[in-house]
Simulated scan of single mutants.
Amino acid sequence: MTSEDIMFHFAPAYAPHFGGLYESAVKSAKHHLKRIAFRSHLTFEELCTLLTQIEAILNSRPLSPLSSDPNDLNPLTPGHFLIGRSFTTIPSHSYHQYNLNRLTRYERIEALRQHFWKRWHAEYLRQLQQRNKWMTNYTQLNTDKLVLLKDENLPPLKWKLGRIMKLYPGQDGIARVADVRTIDGIVRRAACKICPLPDSE
């Protein structure tokens, strides 16, 4: 490591608040994991499988646009730093309506994963969309900006991404409606359903 000029800076012991953003992500994951798996009585292998799947969910989150090209809908994710691309998963049946006691062991783990995704995904989108409207003006939506669209029915590791094509400002000049180009075509959404990704601007 010395020959590559790599230096490590460690946080002091028992001081997780020194970690900042990455520690808040760990706290959020632990919070939801504790609530979904508290009384599940998982074996070591089942818990290891569930934790690996949760790791993939956390590392699939979009961080920022991958390029400045307005035709590129791909985001930069933590998965790019780990494996060189974003994480994917095979489609699976939804187990939200089933009683956990009636499922097989595999189906129970899948149901726990889906439950974690539903809770954590909603919280992550809310963090991206924080607007302190009484303190400061929040960032306006801009054309060609990469955004996430809120959709409560997405399966784990699926993010609905798009680029803003056209804005519809109101009488006060603030755009509250936008046309967004996605893989499936152009959709019109209200600003409350659009979560802009942070970028270098």
Rank of each mutant, 00 (worst) to 15 (best):
T2Y: 11
S3Y: 13
E4D: 10
E4F: 13
D5Y: 11
D5V: 11
D5H: 13
M7V: 15
F8C: 13
F8V: 15
A11T: 13
P12K: 09
A15P: 01
A15V: 08
H17M: 11
H17T: 06
L21V: 15
L21W: 05
S24L: 15
A25M: 13
A29W: 04
L33A: 12
R35W: 00
I36P: 00
I36W: 01
R39T: 07
H41R: 14
T43E: 08
F44K: 12
E46A: 11
T49V: 04
L50A: 06
Q53H: 10
Q53I: 06
I54A: 07
E55D: 15
A56V: 00
I57H: 01
I57F: 05
L58Q: 13
L58R: 03
N59P: 01
N59M: 08
S60D: 08
S60A: 10
R61W: 09
P65M: 09
L66D: 02
S67P: 04
D69K: 09
D69W: 02
P70E: 05
D72V: 07
L73S: 10
P78A: 12
P78T: 12
G79T: 07
L82M: 05
R85P: 00
T88G: 11
T89V: 10
I90T: 12
I90H: 12
Y95H: 13
Q97W: 00
Y98S: 14
L100R: 14
T104N: 09
Y106F: 00
R108M: 07
R108N: 02
E110C: 02
W117F: 08
H121W: 03
A122V: 00
E123Q: 12
Y124T: 12
R126G: 02
R126C: 11
L128V: 06
Q129G: 12
Q129Y: 03
Q129P: 00
Q130F: 04
W134P: 00
T136Y: 04
T136W: 03
N137Q: 13
N137E: 02
T139W: 05
T139F: 02
L141T: 08
L141D: 01
N142L: 14
N142E: 15
K145S: 14
L146R: 02
L146V: 09
V147C: 10
V147E: 02
L148I: 10
L149C: 08
K150W: 00
K150I: 08
K150Q: 12
K150L: 06
E152R: 10
L154T: 09
P155L: 04
P156Y: 02
W159R: 07
W159E: 04
W159M: 05
K160G: 02
G162I: 04
I164W: 02
I164M: 07
I164C: 02
K166L: 14
L167M: 09
Y168A: 06
P169H: 07
G170C: 08
Q171H: 13
D172L: 07
I174E: 12
R176P: 00
A178I: 05
V180N: 04
R181Y: 04
G185L: 02
G185C: 09
I186F: 05
I186L: 05
R189G: 01
R189I: 04
A191M: 09
K193C: 12
P196S: 10
L197T: 06
L197D: 01
P198H: 06
P198A: 07
E201N: 15
